[in-house]
Simulated scan of single mutants.
Amino acid sequence: MKKSFFRLLSVAALFALLLFHDTAFEGAKSGLILWGSVVVPTLLPFMICSNVIVSLNAIHILIFPVRQLLHRFFCLSDAGCYTFVSGLLCGYPMGAKTCSEFMDADRITQKEGKYLLAICNHPSPMFLLGYAASGLPKSVPVWILLLCIYAPVIPVALAARFCYKVDRPFGSMPVSKESIKSFDESLMGSCEVMVKIGGYIMLFSILAFYITKLPILCSEYKAVLLGFVEITTGIQAVSHVFAGTMGGLWISGATAFGGLSGVFQTKSVIKNAGLSIRHYVVWKAIHTLLTILLFILLTRLPILLPSA
């Protein structure tokens, strides 16, 4: 039944591309421009550098300032600490990619990998401060967006620890020679992942352009739907349609979830590690709900918002 559905969907997508080729062209061009001008320059250097750090077994140097905190509070091993930090700093889907690769190399256990996937995949501060912040209404300070995105990591981590029965810190696992890669291997591996990401961004940008052409939805519904399909297009649409704190609310929610494009990007980098994309979507949904609730709570306190 599942295969039949996707067969029909693929045929329908082909006819949509043929019938509405102008929209498909604009969507593909927009997605590739976004990928080439924003995603590649910000993510690829971090990805290559991260692979080199892992290959040189220099993880302990990078995580030294936060190792004790993450080890005690989040119960992470050294490799788990690095996975968590890289996911916070580098953005989608770097955390999931690192988690998957460490599981493949037996540097973290399957249990820690499942736990990490719930908390390690987030938008980067560069994306929030650069792209997402530019869409925020003036009445919403950037620090509220940052707090609403990153603060829910703590309750999600506590819930994930309970779900996966993590009751004590994970121990570090030995590094095998087979897991050490050359610089060329690190470079090519990073480029392969970037091509996958670019493909998904292009496809979901086409879908986003099709949504904008739908005559059956009002502009507000379209903007929210776009935000949960592809976050960059969605942020732009939300900023044009919603004013005041409502715009900040939907931008925060869409950014926390990462969009369906982010889900498929994540799926493409974890498929070989035995991690569940369904579990990932559930945790991202919980994170998004907490983000929305925290945003509502903070914006209900007038003292936290700038006066008009």
Rank of each mutant, 00 (worst) to 15 (best):
C218A: 12
K213V: 07
I154F: 07
K284A: 07
S239D: 10
V195A: 15
S219H: 13
I286C: 08
P45F: 04
T212C: 13
L294N: 06
T232H: 07
P215G: 11
I48K: 07
A151P: 04
L301K: 12
S55R: 06
G36Y: 09
I216G: 08
Q265P: 00
I286W: 00
A28I: 06
M47E: 04
P123Q: 10
L146Q: 05
G95W: 00
F73K: 15
L17N: 15
P302Y: 12
P93S: 15
F170R: 01
S134C: 15
T232Y: 04
L301H: 10
F73R: 13
P123W: 01
L147V: 15
T42K: 07
A273L: 14
M246N: 08
I292C: 15
L249W: 03
L304E: 05
V195T: 14
G258D: 04
S307T: 09
S179G: 07
V282I: 11
Q265I: 04
G171C: 13
M188I: 12
E230R: 02
S176M: 07
I48Y: 03
G87V: 06
S182Q: 10
V193D: 05
V281D: 01
Y210Q: 13
P302G: 13
S239P: 04
G253W: 00
K111C: 08
I211L: 14
L226K: 02
I211T: 06
C49A: 12
I197K: 01
P152C: 09
F46C: 09
S239T: 10
R300A: 14
I277E: 05
N51Y: 04
C90K: 03
S124R: 06
H122M: 09
L290P: 03
G234K: 00
G247D: 03
I149S: 03
K2F: 11
A208P: 01
L226H: 02
G135I: 05
F20L: 14
L207Q: 03
I235S: 02
R107P: 01
L145G: 00
G27C: 05
A118Q: 04
I61R: 11
L146D: 03
F209L: 15
H240V: 10
A133T: 08
F228W: 05
T212E: 09
G189Q: 12
L275Q: 05
M246R: 08
A256E: 02
G259R: 00
P169H: 14
L44A: 03
M194Q: 13
C163N: 11
S176F: 04
I180K: 09
Q265G: 03
L8A: 11
L117P: 01
I303R: 09
L116Y: 00
I231V: 14
G36V: 09
I33G: 04
Q236S: 13
I251R: 02
L70M: 12
P141D: 12
F209W: 14
L260Q: 07
G247V: 02
W250D: 02
P141C: 15
S261P: 00
L89G: 05
A243I: 14
M1E: 10
H60P: 06
M126I: 14
V40A: 06
V153P: 00
S186F: 01
S55I: 08
